[in-house]
Design a protein around this nucleic acid. Structure first.
Lengths: 159, 159
DNA sequence: TGCTATAGTAAAGGCGGTTGTCTAGCCCAG
DNA sequence: CTGGGCTAGACAACCGCCTTTACTATAGCA
């Protein structure tokens, strides 16, 4: 009881804040998804790789894709993407090849192991989403996906 | 073109994977929220504090709360919570006081600056959510909150 | 008087990035 | 064909937000 007035004002705030804010919920939901996806990938023999690496996969074109392009598509810095590429390369999932049209650039391309990982990651995704659909119902899952997409793209909330 | 068959199989997978998976969407949405919340807190004079610290606030009772309890409520380890408490303590937002009923335990309590932070965090949350509501509509925002809550609590998807 | 369980701390490490800085190559203007 | 600015990428350092592992101190029962 340091200052009754402060405490009383705070009490209401606490009650309202206890309805978890969206940021926290998003974080926890993401972690739940993440943890299960990783363990499923492990079961399929892909150790040493994490969900972060799946930020790269769906953006890789068949002919190979530049790091800068990948970074843009994934919404992160090119340095960050460069690291992901290095890790995937070390494990043999992708290779860096020179871009014939620009000597500064590098094309990142799947190896055969990379294709296998892609297939497995895809299977994992489908399995997980089927699980979510069975709990939420597929309509609410679709609604979730759409809402998230709007938030991400629209930068909902101004500022 | 290492192996046409592999590439062709992968092409479909890529197309399907490009519909962002839920995990990525959650992550990106969380980051968007996070970044804006932090900058708003900064504007209100709370530098050095991040969104992570708001994982602690709504769980702090008026009389003070044990670290273990806080950790449980926030869904993290007590070591992790201990760190958050230390950081908040260093900045003067909370204090550790001995628990009179158990010499091993510590009660974490707000200081006056802590109450102020709580109020500001609350204001930020309301402002942000108002922004989301204006983009999504309040129904879809509520639906989002509920869906996320189920995912977090239910561990949707089994296994 | 021990045994075990619990509260908390300490240290290290990991994941998933960021910022800042650098070089090598590109390309346009003059 | 040269200089200036721009872009692709690499390298290094760092940060936020935790986790695991290991430990100490107290509690409380048999």
């Amino acid at each position: 009881m340091p200052q009754p007035s402060a405490a009383e004002a705070g009490e209401e705030q606490i009650r309202e804040l206890r309805e978890q804010h969206i940021g926290r919920l998003l974080l926890q939901a993401q972690r739940a998804y993440n943890a299960r996806a990783i363990s499923m990938l492990h079961e399929r023999g892909h150790r040493g790789l994490t969900l972060a690496h799946t930020a790269l996969l769906p953006h890789l074109d068949l002919e190979g894709t530049r790091i800068t392009t990948l970074a843009e598509r994934a919404g992160m810095t090119k340095q960050g993407m460069g690291q992901l590429v290095s890790e995937l390369e070390r494990q043999g999932y992708v290779v860096r090849v020179a871009d014939p049209t620009d000597a500064r650039a590098v094309l990142v391309r799947f190896t055969d192991a990379g294709w296998q990982f892609l297939r497995d990651a895809h299977a994992v995704k489908r399995e997980l989403e089927a699980g979510y659909a069975s709990v939420l119902g597929s309509e609410r899952l679709d609604a979730l996906r759409e809402t998230l997409q709007e938030i991400v793209e629209g930068g909902a909330g101004g500022a």
